[in-house]
Design a protein around this nucleic acid. Sequence first.
DNA 1: TATGAATGAGTGTTCATTCAT
DNA 2: TATGAATGAACACTCATTCAT
Lengths: 214, 214, 214, 214
Amino acid sequence: MSEEPAPRRRQARGERRITQLLQAAASVFCRTGYAAASTNAIAREAEVSPGTLYQYFPNKEAIAVELGGRLLQQMRETHGLAFDRANLELPLPELVDAVLEPVIEFNCRNPAFLALIHGSGDIPGRIAEEHEAVHASMLTRIEETIGHFAPDLAADDRARIASMTLGIVKAGLELVLAAPDGPQRDATVAELKRALVRYLEPLFTPGLAATPGP
Amino acid sequence: MSEEPAPRRRQARGERRITQLLQAAASVFCRTGYAAASTNAIAREAEVSPGTLYQYFPNKEAIAVELGGRLLQQMRETHGLAFDRANLELPLPELVDAVLEPVIEFNCRNPAFLALIHGSGDIPGRIAEEHEAVHASMLTRIEETIGHFAPDLAADDRARIASMTLGIVKAGLELVLAAPDGPQRDATVAELKRALVRYLEPLFTPGLAATPGP
Amino acid sequence: MSEEPAPRRRQARGERRITQLLQAAASVFCRTGYAAASTNAIAREAEVSPGTLYQYFPNKEAIAVELGGRLLQQMRETHGLAFDRANLELPLPELVDAVLEPVIEFNCRNPAFLALIHGSGDIPGRIAEEHEAVHASMLTRIEETIGHFAPDLAADDRARIASMTLGIVKAGLELVLAAPDGPQRDATVAELKRALVRYLEPLFTPGLAATPGP
Amino acid sequence: MSEEPAPRRRQARGERRITQLLQAAASVFCRTGYAAASTNAIAREAEVSPGTLYQYFPNKEAIAVELGGRLLQQMRETHGLAFDRANLELPLPELVDAVLEPVIEFNCRNPAFLALIHGSGDIPGRIAEEHEAVHASMLTRIEETIGHFAPDLAADDRARIASMTLGIVKAGLELVLAAPDGPQRDATVAELKRALVRYLEPLFTPGLAATPGP
DNA sequence: TATGAATGAGTGTTCATTCAT
DNA sequence: TATGAATGAACACTCATTCAT
């Protein structure tokens, strides 16, 4: 009677606290990087005491793991959505457009995502693994798409191309985030798309050798 | 006659110590990033006491600055050499080859370079500036090359393309370093070159619009 | 109603901690002097962890500054009181008595004061300045008193006499502190007073040349 | 044949080295105090390597002990000389003059002496003992002199008066050293003498009660 | 002997984490 | 639950002391 209704509210409050803490963490990680971010700073940013922070996270790493996980999940959805929307019938430029648009938007709204991925060298084990997992899932999705257009490609070539594609996207994303919002950012986005289209074009154009030839 | 040899030997020993310490630092920075690297860990890696480390470097930053400076200097030379060797008469694939080869080789031999560049956000003032300077000089060199082949390009387009080019190179370099030495790495190198050639080809091929058209 | 008591209690606790730490610092400074006193030793003396010490003081100097400041403030009050109580109508022995009594009492209760003044050469900037200020204000007060009884005295003579007076007081204070509490200490106090009275008597006795004469 | 003449020269050289090191130590102690003085700084000041310093002194304390000891010895001689020269037939002002003159001169020439005495709180055991010894010998000499003029004085009164006398001398010495060389210093010296004469006068003037009486 | 590079325990200080309230 | 004071191991750095040359 006094146990039933409370838990739900408690859970709701807990969820709100966690969100609040993760937002604070995102903000601090962005400003200072993972290694230099102190849990006290995160708690302060969340306007919460250090003790409270540790009521929801067992340690600093867990914060990064959870934040990374959530961002990664959103990214997965975003990405999935992107590939879904982009039915594979579209010509390459439009496909690239459709896939990239939500990814760019997501990263502009969540700069912590790239920050966390970038700093993942400094970050201890688990989060790196999580990151690795999403990374892998992205690669898989890209590989599938490539496979759809170039079914004869050897598996390792396909994997390599997917990696390079993702690498170009990340590099471009960084340039996009670095560019001031407005026409400059738009131009950078366009440049990234151009780079991708040119890189992938031969794969999507039957009759042109995409891989090393004789 | 009894004064000369000692100082010289001592200097030689000092130089060796510095090299040894910088190697240790490179190794630790690679493993943990700059921020998380402790001076004691560097000293331990160099099999030297903390006091000895501080006999050669006034503080932690100075280690990164010196290491970064040396790598940057080598990189500058490597890069310069690359562009020198690559007389601009070569067709694009050979040009890319000539420029990339030494850069890749350098980065394979000095993985700390990329690590340091990556962590340069956390790194205090001077090294970041130094890095910025080399980054800028690389960009300039790339811009010049682009300008040679596409003299009519607007300055900001040229700058953007140069940035994207460098971004692709860095991303590719990371993939190359991640690939196990041997055929896989070679294939990754080839893939990176392919990406660059495809991206830049239109610029180097008269009659094809390289910049945004209608 | 549920917000008020906690902060106040907390503040009270903080104040107690600070007092406790300052007492520990006073004790350690007395034993070893400022320069040789280690923050860890102070924390240990206060039965507190180093981290706690640093929750209340930003660095070692700040401890000395705060301790010095508090003692100096008390000394100022003590001293002021002394001169106030001692209306200048009293004959010299009573005047000396009235001024010295509270000063001696204060220093017996706060031996760190003299220790800190002694070590103030080693102590960084601000505290030395503070000390200098109180020293100067003491001198001023002594000069005024002298001026009241010997208005014809040249300014530099008056200053010199005040310095010597203060010097004698300090030297005597040290002897007093060194003497075991009880009759020996009382006798030392009496001796100090005697020394002061004899030194200053000529100034306060019209008709006797107080300054160098032929 | 190859052993005999060398030792003496070696000893002579050693003695020179020690003197050189002690001078350097005196200079550094004066500038920074004992606690803050580093052995490396002393070696540097002596233009000698740290290793050499440790060939002549087993540790930092030993340097202070030896320096203190030598200064103390010189002081003893100076002081003894002072008391010898001042045959006790002289009237008090001349006696004070005769005793003080060489003491002041010595301290002006060896400011490290006072610095070392001042810092003796920070200084570990042995040197403090040495210092105590000379201190005691000075007191004894003063007591003897007092005893000569006031033979009826109780022993503890005599001791107390001697202590106070020495305290005044030290305090005055400090003022003298602080005063800029020239007329100001001379005036301070004169003031110190005046203070001593006034303090001691009653003891030396039969018919005047020197100790507390009704 | 003289050198000065090397040592390592110790210093001031920070911060992830705990716990009494 | 929430708080924030308390903890203590670890960090950057120093310096008295040692030792290979």
